[in-house]
């Protein structure tokens, strides 16, 4: 075990993290979305989506369509919301949207910012959901919400790093 070997290992690790980061950012560029892959966190779109389902977003549509499932962000609220477009009003310059969760009784008006009646298609959307993959995102939910899983996984990685460095 010499210094050169350890440095090479460090380099490999940096390479793995960097390539993942570059791939993520490239996907963001292609889809024009700052978060092109989204994990569903709530049951408000049941039975279509459950917690942990993965959505691929696309944000280059000129207009949203009624029935589209869009991901939007509200100023001052950090969590993006995945809901369906209930109404759209568009002119040549802009499009206004009202959304609703399939599993909610009411539209999203109470979720919007104070005084906000509609979403702006250009500025409020993170993207439109185009592709669906079930359940796999539950790993990230476990990582953020379950302490045992998080530290268990970290511990396992640490142990394997120690054991394999011969």
């Amino acid at each position: 075990m010499n210094l050169r070997e350890q440095l090479t290992q460090l380099l490999t690790l940096a390479y793995v993290f960097l390539s993942a980061f570059v791939a993520w950012k490239a996907l963001g560029l292609v889809t024009n979305s700052h978060s092109p892959i989204v994990v569903v966190l709530s049951g408000s779109m049941l039975p279509a989506f459950d917690r942990g389902d993965i959505l691929l977003l696309w944000n280059r549509d000129q207009q949203a369509r009624v029935g589209d499932i869009v991901v939007y962000e509200i100023a001052d609220k950090s969590i993006p919301i995945v809901h369906r477009v209930l109404r759209e009003h568009h002119s040549t310059e802009k499009q206004l949207l009202l959304t609703k969760g399939d599993n909610n009784m009411q539209d999203d008006l109470p979720l919007y910012a104070k005084g906000q009646l509609y979403l702006n298609q250009k500025t409020d959307l993170v993207g439109t959901a185009k592709f669906f993959f079930p359940k796999l995102g539950y790993v990230t939910i476990l990582l953020t919400e379950n302490q045992y899983f998080k530290f268990g996984l970290l511990g396992l990685m640490g142990i394997s790093a120690v054991l394999t460095s011969e």
Binding site: P47, A48, R65, V66, G67, R87, H89, H90, S91, D102
Partner: peptide, 28 residues
């Protein structure tokens, strides 16, 4: 897995160039 069926109404606005589509009814 499921279909989402919805009844929409499309209409022109009073303002020129304004067009809307709204949902009256839907079903999963």
């Amino acid at each position: 897995k499921q279909i989402f069926v919805y009844l929409t109404a499309e209409y022109e606005g009073k303002l020129a160039g304004l067009s809307s589509r709204v949902t009256y009814w839907d079903k999963i």
